[in-house]
Design a protein around this nucleic acid. Structure first.
Length: 264
DNA sequence: CGGCATGTTTCGCC
DNA sequence: AGGCGAAACATGCC
């Protein structure tokens, strides 16, 4: 489930943590840097941020400045016992505490129960991870800030399929498999097109589709709430726009759904 | 049981 | 040197 939209939803969910102090951390050592719990114990959370698919907790008074939360394919975030996104379409809807990879406990404050972790990173497949002071400098422009000139720069000189380029976090940070298919569908561009073959108008259209669709899907609840929903992806019904059966294939090593008629 | 899954990293090949 | 594609990773679910 985690793409940039989910990361943004979880970033917002983390806002109530600002001002609290981490009194304990329990982590699965396999997904955390060495000594993570000892380093963050005593940290005061001073802000929350997000870059691409990474949620960031700014921390003070410890030997680190930021905690990075990465969700892999099946990671999800539970804050103060509540999951902002409950439904995992491609994973179980279960919330098994055995899958908790990170638990942060904060000091008791009004309205909170200190026995409940303030934050849980719950991830059955364990492809997510937690980091300290993650290097974000290699990431491309964030998907929420992206404008046509950014996209133009990002795609220039790339001979790979445009979909592969969109999935590359060094090109654009925050687009995942579902969002990439979605914005290509809306902009009428085939995922198979060479990235550097898009003309200015197509790049403007793609950037515009990203800018318009993201807020809508964010309001609806995430990457699964688009025209190419998981149901559509599995059934490949006629294209909502022109009635031609949607096509399924593999692009950039990922299952890709597109309309062979209006996406050119 | 086989295949598939919203992601990233690594390796080998140009 | 760096872009590119395939494989690997780990585990649950249909």
């Amino acid at each position: 489930m985690p793409e940039g939209l989910e990361a943004e939803i979880w970033r917002r969910a983390c806002e109530p943590l600002v001002g609290r102090t981490i009194v304990d951390a329990v982590v699965d050592e396999r997904v955390a840097p060495f000594g993570f719990a000892d380093i963050v114990r005593g940290a005061t959370i001073s802000g929350v941020g997000r870059t691409g698919k990474v949620v960031l907790l700014d921390v003070e008074d410890v030997d680190a400045e930021r905690i990075g939360l990465h969700f892999g394919m099946t990671g999800r975030l539970v804050v103060d016992g509540a999951a902002p996104i409950d439904r995992l379409t491609y994973a179980s809807g279960r919330d098994d505490s055995a899958w908790d990879r990170v638990r942060l406990f904060t000091q008791a404050s009004p309205g909170t129960d200190s026995r409940i972790p303030a934050l849980r990173l719950n991830d059955p497949r364990r492809l997510g991870k937690v980091t300290l002071d993650p290097d974000l400098s290699t990431l491309g422009v964030d998907v929420f800030a992206l404008r046509a000139p950014d996209l133009h720069r990002a795609l220039r000189g790339r001979r790979t399929a445009v979909k592969s380029a969109l999935l590359d976090q060094h090109v654009v940070a925050g687009l995942g498999n579902l969002l990439s298919d979605e914005v290509l569908w809306w902009s009428g561009i085939s995922p198979l097109r060479r990235a550097d073959s898009l003309d200015d108008q197509e790049i403007a259209g793609l950037a515009s589709a990203i800018r318009r669709r993201l807020p809508i899907m964010l309001r609806r609840g995430g990457s699964t709430m688009g025209t190419l929903s998981p149901d559509v992806r599995s059934a490949c019904p006629p294209c909502e726009r022109d009635g031609v059966p949607l096509q399924r294939g593999s692009v950039g090593g990922r299952t890709t759904i597109w309309c062979p008629d209006h996406q050119r």
